[in-house]
Simulated scan of single mutants.
Amino acid sequence: MSTASRPAPSRLLRNARVATGALFFTNGALFSNLLPRYPAIKSGLDLTNTEFGLVVIAFPVGAIISGLAAAAAIRRFGAANVAVIGTVLTAAGLVAVGWAPALWLIVAALFVAGSADSITDVGQNSHGIAVQRGYGRSIINSFHAVWSAGAVTGGLMGTAAAANEVPLGLHLTVSSVVWVLVAFVARRFTLPAGMSVGPPLVEEHHTAGGPAAAWLRRPPVLLAALVLIAMSGTMVEDAGNTWSAVFLTQELDAGPALAGLAFVATVGAQFVGRVLGDPMTDRLGQRAVARLGAALIIVGMGLVVLGPSSVAVIAGFALAGFGSATLVPAAMNAADDMPGMRAGNALTIVSWLMRVAFVVSPPLVGAIGDAAGLRAGLAVVPVLAVGTLLLAGVLRGRER
């Protein structure tokens, strides 16, 4: 990073940082409006846990199928433009979910929304990393913190709509229009398209451990490790997104308002972790922060699985959410710093493959839940966190 940009970021960079934060906020709020409505959708369609898990993976399946197009789109149109266009298409898919009269239409609409969301995700992260380069210090966690704040806002909107029995179609239409307008306004203040892609080649990224860890520096191994680290974070997000409200409703007989708070606690704690993430990363390094986060995921999900009350379960989701806070940003940042990769390629690959967790997790947790209860199903969530403890050496250590 250029040291010249460190003393005083330009007005362009400051505006771009705020605008990028608005795009992240919008992305978090859009989909999160739907999540507290999942229990009603599940019961309204009379779905088993397994069937429900198979329905909701339409969103990540769409993301995986379309995700690899993001890098080419960014190079052609610019990261910010891609993020805004993706936001519009995601919103359209969610509105269709709200008004869909049949199960297959809900699946199709979730597929479209997920396809657009994956491209939005890469676009906004690519733009955020470009702004970070201009600042010359870690700010990527702050963008993901704003995403979490948006997710909390969307979750509260959805919880309120569910508690007041607002029709799903009306609720998702109003929320989608609001957040699309925010995205259009934000686009006016982002970096010009030519500045939002980043350099064609990036600096070499070093792992920990010297010769003993040299195998981790091989590009395929490094990419795989970064994907696993990101997936250990997204597994927690998926547990909060898909199963927290269902778990509290089904296992602990919680009402709609209380059940929706488990998701809010997950993303709320994740928000706090991301606000603290940049100073923690600057002080301790990505590696130590990731290992601490993985340990908190293991403890938090253990509390979810063993917790005797709704309060204990919500606290466990919050702890796991805090632990997952920096994992996805760290993996994406490290991917964008990989040597010898064209702009956006490594970031796109990590973003694309980490969504496998969103595809595998719902039906896996659902199938185990039908066979042995959702407590047993959610016990699989922290497994990847163990891998993060072992492979966090691919991330940056503390700068000396």
Rank of each mutant, 00 (worst) to 15 (best):
S43W: 04
S43K: 08
S43C: 03
G44I: 00
L45D: 03
L45C: 10
L45H: 13
L45S: 08
D46G: 11
D46F: 05
L47M: 10
L47H: 04
L47I: 06
T48H: 02
T48W: 00
N49S: 07
T50A: 09
T50H: 03
T50S: 12
E51N: 07
G53A: 04
L54N: 13
V56R: 01
I57S: 08
I57M: 14
A58Q: 00
A58K: 00
F59R: 00
F59P: 00
V61F: 13
V61C: 13
G62R: 05
G62P: 03
A63Q: 07
I64C: 14
I65N: 02
S66W: 12
G67N: 08
G67V: 06
L68M: 14
A72M: 11
I74G: 09
I74V: 15
R76H: 10
R76P: 08
F77R: 01
A79F: 06
A79L: 04
A80D: 10
A80F: 12
N81T: 15
N81Q: 15
V84P: 12
I85T: 15
I85K: 09
G86P: 05
T87S: 13
T87D: 06
T87F: 06
V88T: 15
L89S: 06
L89E: 08
T90V: 07
A91W: 03
A92I: 15
A92F: 14
A96Q: 12
A96D: 08
A96W: 14
G98N: 09
W99T: 14
P101G: 10
P101N: 11
A102Y: 12
A102N: 12
L103E: 11
L103M: 15
L103G: 11
L103D: 07
W104V: 14
L105E: 09
I106D: 04
I106Q: 02
I106T: 11
I106Y: 02
V107C: 12
A108Q: 05
